Amino acid sequence: MKEVLLAYASMSGNTEAIADVIEEVLIEKKLAVHRLEVFDLTPEDIRNFDHIILGSYTWGDGELPDEFLDFYDEMDDIDFSQKKVAVFGSGDMSYDIFCGAVDLLEEKVQSQGGSLMTAGLKVELAPYGEDVEKCKAYACSIVKEIKKK
């Protein structure tokens, strides 16, 4: 069974709700999910998985939240060249930069040699209605990429 690391930061529960939908689809598609909050994530965790999904809400004007800052800095010392990564996040469209944390994480992964399994998922606040289906489709695109030979 293929294993996936799913790590995220969530303050209000919105990003966690997205992670819930993603995890549900991955498990339904017979993938093993190792789920962590970013506070508990270590560089060693990244080294132990080939498939990684990172999630974060966006703080202020397109910034990473405090919970993600230490790990973001640690990413400079991680070789992502053999890693396939996907990034998702929640944000608020009333800000000038919507879901900027997703962009920051994707850029960092790519600068460290990682490849993205799919375009980042950006959700307005929490996943309701159509956004739940958008999250499921995103998770299915990850599954398809993981199961590719």
Rank of each mutant, 00 (worst) to 15 (best):
V109M: 01
Y57H: 07
D103C: 07
I27F: 03
L36K: 15
P43I: 03
P43N: 02
S81C: 05
K83C: 03
V25Q: 12
F88L: 03
A7P: 06
V132Y: 08
N14Y: 00
G91Y: 02
G114I: 09
L104W: 13
G62Q: 12
G129R: 03
V38D: 02
K84E: 13
G91E: 13
Q82W: 07
Y95D: 08
Q110C: 15
G62V: 10
E107M: 13
S12N: 11
T42C: 13
F49L: 11
V85C: 14
P127G: 00
K144A: 12
S111R: 12
L6T: 05
V102D: 07
K83D: 08
K134T: 15
D70T: 06
L6K: 00
L36A: 01
D50Y: 11
S12F: 01
E24P: 03
F80Y: 03
M1T: 05
E23A: 12
M1Q: 06
I52G: 06
C140L: 14
V85I: 13
A32E: 10
D76C: 06
Q82D: 14
S111M: 15
T118S: 02
L5D: 02
P43T: 04
A32D: 13
G120I: 02
D61W: 12
C135H: 09
G114T: 11
F80H: 09
A9R: 01
F88H: 12
K29Q: 15
K83T: 01
D45A: 04
S94I: 13
E23T: 04
E130L: 10
E145Q: 15
Y95L: 09
E74S: 12
A137W: 08
D61I: 11
W59T: 09
Y138Q: 05
G55Y: 05
A139Y: 10
V25D: 03
D73Y: 09
D20W: 02
M75Y: 10
D76W: 10
Q110F: 02
E107V: 14
T58E: 04
W59F: 15
H34I: 08
K149Q: 12
F88A: 02
P127H: 03
L69K: 12
E16K: 14
H51A: 01
I53F: 04
D66A: 13
E16V: 08
D73F: 04
G91L: 07
L64E: 02
Y8E: 05
I97K: 12
S56C: 10
L69R: 07
W59V: 08
A139F: 11
E16P: 09
L41H: 00
Q112H: 08
V21W: 05
G62P: 07
E16S: 13
Y8W: 00
R47P: 00
I146T: 14
K2H: 10
Y72S: 04
Y95C: 07
P43V: 07
G100K: 12
K2T: 15
A139D: 05
Y57M: 06
D66H: 01
P65G: 08
T42Y: 14
H34R: 11
I97E: 15
A9L: 00
L26A: 05
V4Q: 09
M93P: 09
I52V: 15
K122W: 10
K122A: 08
K108S: 04
S111Q: 11
L121N: 12
F39H: 12
V38Q: 00
P127C: 01
I27Q: 06
S94E: 14
L5K: 00
L104P: 05
